[in-house]
Design a protein around this nucleic acid. Structure first.
Length: 286
DNA sequence: CCACTAACCTGTAGGC
DNA sequence: TGCCTACAGGTTAGTG
């Protein structure tokens, strides 16, 4: 999916075009994405004004003028595009919304998603939304720090790679940025999660480093406009640039970027996903 | 509760 | 060119 930086890039691209706009018509070109659309989805959206576009983890949230908020997850290949020109509907354009802005100009907002791993929902109270209420802290918020991670990581046996992908621990990382953050922190993706926590429950120095590199890599990626992976584009149709700054992701066999390190990037499979790392400078914790 | 697998889909890249 | 396999940004449901 678009991970947190890509979703944030989409949010920033969409917001100025759709905030304050009224939804005049909603066209669903199929009954479902990954899940069925909620009951009366189009009717509940029609007539609403999109007040503000938010993001929580990898979820895009559009607060509406009524009680409800439109939640969307982009899955692996989902994307929104917005235009003031008539649009030709493409094969995987599943949701089309005709908007009218306050200045009376028209906009078309289109959700496309070839693999259909994305989904949409409507909720009134975030605390009652099953997609949102189990999420861990925002990686860029104050609640994400080494001490709070230590509480969740203590005594966990599974690999740190999978703990960071678990959205209940920290919400917004995906395969790419987990690999990048672990490399920056010098931690092997195979490290048992609990090894990053001292016996007294406080974070080891490596976990302190990791909470910093998570923040750093996400901020750098957002600043670069996200990464452009395969068919992902931001909402303006432009490409992000952060993929050129990957240090490990997709670099199997290439030299490690750590200064003075003679290692080369390896790829292993953990819980069915590729992990890229340098076996030389990303040591397991002893 | 924890850990792991399979499943949901389509498209693309690479080998032969 | 065609066929086959492997793989791709994520999450949930099901199993043990």
């Amino acid at each position: 999916m678009p991970e947190l930086p890509e979703v944030e890039t989409v949010r920033r691209g969409l917001a100025p075009h759709i905030e304050g706009a009224r939804i005049e018509e909603v066209i669903l070109n199929r009954p479902n994405l990954r899940f069925a659309f909620p009951n009366d989805f189009a009717e509940r959206l029609t007539g609403q004004v999109i007040v503000q576009v938010h993001r929580r983890a990898k979820y895009l949230l559009m607060a509406l003028s009524g009680e409800e908020t439109l939640l969307s997850h982009l899955g692996m290949t989902g994307n929104f595009r917005v235009s003031d020109q008539p649009q030709t509907i493409q094969k995987h354009d599943h949701v089309v919304m005709h908007l009218r802005r306050q200045d009376e100009s028209a906009r078309t907002l289109i959700y496309s998603d070839p693999r259909r791993f994305g989904f949409m929902d409507l909720y009134t109270d975030a605390a009652d939304c099953a997609f949102l209420n189990r999420l861990g802290p925002e990686p860029l918020g104050n609640e994400m720090n080494a001490a709070s991670l230590a509480v969740r990581f203590k005594a966990r046996k599974s690999a740190i790679k999978s703990a960071l992908l678990d959205q209940r621990n920290i919400a917004g990382l995906g395969n790419i940025y987990v690999c990048e953050a672990l490399w920056r922190a010098g931690i092997s993706p195979e490290t048992p999660t609990g090894d990053l926590v001292k016996a007294d429950g406080t974070p080891r120095r490596e976990l302190e480093a990791l909470s910093g590199t998570i923040r750093d890599v996400l901020e750098a990626a957002i600043a670069a406009g996200g990464s452009t992976l395969r068919d992902f584009r931001n909402s303006e149709g432009g490409a992000g640039y952060f993929q050129h700054a990957f240090d490990v992701y997709g670099r199997e066999g290439e030299r490690c970027h750590t200064k003075g390190c003679k290692g080369s990037i390896a790829r292993i499979v953990q819980s069915g996903r590729s992990s890229f790392f340098c076996p030389v400078c990303q040591s397991k914790i002893s």
